[in-house]
Design a protein around this nucleic acid. Structure first.
Lengths: 184, 184
DNA sequence: CAATTCTGAGACACCCACGTCTCATGTGAC
DNA sequence: GTCACATGAGACGTGGGTGTCTCAGAATTG
């Protein structure tokens, strides 16, 4: 079952996001398996964190797809993206925080691809006149991810109610990004 | 000279922010000293990263002081804070990213104190009617730091011009935080 | 110039996480 | 019931970073 691998990866994120230097024993225990089985599933620590990154990126890409960010009004597209990606906010937070992931080529390639999609979305929005042009599309892309990661942390630490996550992100970010202030 | 210690700490941030697991050799080389001298200045790795955190927190507290966040209109206070804190954005980014710092009690205490000041600022602003009340003061505080950290990364990686840093942060954040949109 | 202090380079041992292996136990299929 | 397979527990060796030490050379001070 490939589901088993994914559940282990999810547990690994829960531990690694808090302490990136956590021992494999701890990760195995968090996943409910032994260190031996963990080694049978993933050849080593390096492979484990790489697959965690790949899982996060796949989820991210899936969110972009379901949101259809390339279609329609840029404002609506961003709202759809927000809703689609907030459930995986923690994954994205780990993605941006773990600098070790940037060593892997496949991870980097997928990451750049998704960032390019987001950048294109903001660029399109600026051309459509819905996003402010005083702020570069590159900065808007980065800021969106920063806030998304912040949402992930806040929810996980219990500082923000999960039901408020989507609106908190959308309201704050769109308030600063939209050209015409908050036309909901 | 205490300046020497600080210069070493600054160099340490430059390395540790990118790779938190960097070897002491690498940190020493980045600081232009030998590993022996590094050990003479700081008893060990743990002490080093703790002092890096303390340096960052002192800079942060100093920025809060110079901005006089407790005085005057909340909107103006936040703009002053933005200007004062952006030069140390990278320090703050390391501060929020390095979860290992949360183990130290002194670091935690100072951190909570500064966050409380920021929280109070947003609360005051909401009572004054300048900040939106749909977004909790806690979330505004966290989001401000998230964006500040993002500014630090973007500038260090060359994705954002240093001269645009302050305005990029202020424009985007205030746009989403202010009740009356962008009355500059 | 002489003396003191500080620094860099290297060697050394220690420790701990990792990778690998073996064996006993448990589970499911036939 | 028997076989095959997967898992857990533990032991073992190893590698690499760290902490400590020594010694030679440079810098500063008198």
């Amino acid at each position: 079952m490939a589901t088993d691998r994914d559940s282990v990866l999810e547990a690994a994120v829960g531990v690694l996001s808090r302490r990136p230097t956590a021992h494999l024993d701890e990760i195995a225990r968090a996943a409910g398996i032994s260190r031996a089985t963990l080694h049978r599933l993933f050849p080593g620590r390096e492979a484990l964190i790489r697959e965690v990154g790949m899982l996060a990126l796949q989820r991210l890409a899936a969110a972009f797809d379901t949101a259809a960010v390339e279609e329609g009004d840029a404002h609506d597209a961003l709202r759809r993206l927000t809703e689609a990606v907030v459930p995986d906010a923690m994954l994205c937070a780990y993605l941006t925080g773990e600098s070790q992931l940037y060593d892997d080529e496949a991870v980097n390639e997928l990451w750049e691809a998704q960032m390019a999609r987001l950048h294109a979305l903001f660029l399109r929005g600026q051309q459509q006149g819905v996003f402010r042009i005083e702020l570069s599309a590159a900065w808007l892309s980065e800021a969106f991810f920063d806030l998304l990661a912040g949402i992930g942390w806040a929810v996980q630490d219990g500082r923000l109610a999960p039901r408020d996550a989507t609106s908190s992100l959308a309201e704050l970010f769109l308030g600063g990004a939209l050209r015409t202030p908050r036309p909901h």
